[in-house]
Amino acid sequence: MAIKIDRVGEFLEGVKHKRRVLITPEGIPLDVRIAGHGERLGAFAVDIVFMGLAVLALYLLLWLLFFSGSNLSVGMTIILFAAFVVRNLYFVHFELAWQGRTPGKRLCKLRVINRKGGELAPSAVIARNLTREVEFFLPLSLLFSLPSGWQEWCMLGWTLCLTSLPFVNRYHLRIGDLIGGTQVIAMPRRVLLADLSLEAASARAAALLRAPAAPEPGPVTPVKVEDLRPAVHTLQAPVLEAEPVFVFSHEQLSRYGAFELQVLEEFLRRQPSNNTQRLLEEVCRKICNKIGWEGGEIPPGRVRRFLTDFYTAERADLERGQLFGRLRADKNAAAENRKPDKPY
């Protein structure tokens, strides 16, 4: 359901990320996000800084150990040699040792993977990094040597064309990626949060535990999902007993589809604040209008509860439909389903 995830993310963040599908050897397609130009440049800049430090360290080491007291040309030679060794080994070493990540990539949460979905072969890492010499260091040295004749300008133009390749192809591949068969992806780590459908139930259960005689729990204070994580299992039993405060009919629930459900989920997962509260009230009003809510206006203190119950009921309804192969993708699909000639 990669496309759906993409749609909600794009809607909320307003950024269109480039993606591609990777097929694991088990035959499961995985959705990966292609690293952006900015991220990659940032990672590269960090690596350049680290490389500079490494060259300096290597130079001092060699100088102190072997050549202290030699003349200037020896010093220059050593520093050039150190730079050559470091810039050719740095990327290869780290991408092999850290599973496709250099320090810069690690900071920027990027990773080199095999484009075809197999193992990242050492030869692929070597291939993608040897071409750096042609793509980056050659134009740089040409630029610094101040091109004079037309040949040198041509050479510079040509190498800059090669360098700019990642900016003109869909997957942001540079030449090294083409030859090595690799792809740089962005891979932020995601955290599993508590199930929202259980949040209301567990809050209710907590309230019931506090006041077992109360016919209905009082206004719910927003529960931090992180606090609930360890408690999810223990709360399973009360969940089945607890009742939703707001109940919706199938007719009402079929006004919306999976897209709206997931947007609502993201809204409910936002940090509680005045802004969030205003947003939720607005959403609540819209939902009430759309589904023709007849239970009167929802007081601000109950908005969160109303939306959580609506979310749970909507999800249950949609998931049931999905099980029978009738998933409503969004509210437009839902509207189509309600045409008279279509029974569902």
Binding site: M1, A2, I5, V8, L22, T24, I28, L30, D31, V32, M187, P188, R189, R190, V191, L192, L193, D195, L196, S197, A258, L261, Q262, E265, E266, R269, R315, L318, E319, Q322
Partner: peptide
């Protein structure tokens, strides 16, 4: 249809 769960599983699998 829990978006957080789906994204988490995608990420974890990768």
């Amino acid at each position: 249809l829990d978006r957080n769960l789906l994204l988490y599983l995608e990420n974890l699998s990768l």
